[in-house]
Design a protein around this nucleic acid. Structure first.
Lengths: 136, 136
DNA sequence: AATTCTGTATTAATAAAAATAATACAGATG
DNA sequence: CATCTGTATTATTTTTATTAATACAGAATT
């Protein structure tokens, strides 16, 4: 079901996250559909159950799936997933702050540094590399 | 000159940074005043020269000091610092917002787009300032 | 009720990254 | 030339992140 690249430097739980996000966003996995169980994936990929759990938990935290205790993990409803509108709202919040900061000398470079810092401390898992433009 | 707290879990180069910033902002260290040399501090605090250098470099990156190659490090001009201080404040404002946005799927790419948009509409900025990273 | 599925919590082992140190180099200065 | 300065490279140590081992407990199925 999922694919891993063993020679990638990206942690496998992150690979799982990206992998599953992709399947959800492309509707290969439908809302309320059950994800393969932690142990099932564990056996299939011969990795530890906790690694899958970590991925599932992170996906839950990000709102892509929900868990029904002791029943399994399920794909979240559409409206949960499409935060797109909220991102646009966010942008409106950012704009005035950004303008002021730019006025004070904020550079693109520095802003990127802030981004990476926030990324590291807080939420997201993605590597956000040169090409992965993971919109949801 | 500087004080370290050995039982703090904060890395000593960070302690140095905070320490020096404080001295600069409170005008104990005047603009264009020379900082004690890497080795001098090294001996005084019995830590490795490179640790101080790391602190100094970071201070340079943040615009609090500048380095004259092979002459030493010097406190930056006032206007640099005051701007930089405000930028640091700004960063604190940005961080929670950024984390939330990242959580919602904001990508680096998109953030840059926002930056460029804000740049275009309002803020008179241009680069300049202490962005000069690796000058030799 | 027993077997087998499910998630979850705790702890330990391992891998990766950050922080610091050791050492050597090179220009500037007097 | 002797000594100051910063800098670069590499290694060591410490810390954190990642993965694994193991055991527990509820739910479903038989």
């Amino acid at each position: 079901m999922f694919e891993l690249d063993v020679r990638s430097r990206k942690p496998i739980y992150e690979q799982l996250i990206d992998n599953i996000k992709e399947l959800i966003v492309t509707r290969v996995l439908q809302p309320d559909e059950k994800l393969p169980s932690v142990r099932h994936v564990s056996k299939e990929l011969t990795i530890n159950p906790n690694t899958i759990q970590k991925a599932y938990r992170e996906l839950e935290r990000q709102g892509f799936v929900y868990s029904a205790s002791r029943k399994g993990y399920f794909v979240a409803p559409i409206d949960w997933i499409s935060n797109q509108g909220k991102l646009e709202e966010m942008k409106e919040q950012f704009q005035p702050l950004l303008k002021e900061a730019i006025y004070m000398g904020l550079t693109k470079k520095e802003l990127i540094r802030w981004f990476e810092e926030a990324e590291k401390e807080g939420g997201e898992a993605g590597d956000s590399g040169p090409e992965s433009d993971q919109n949801i």
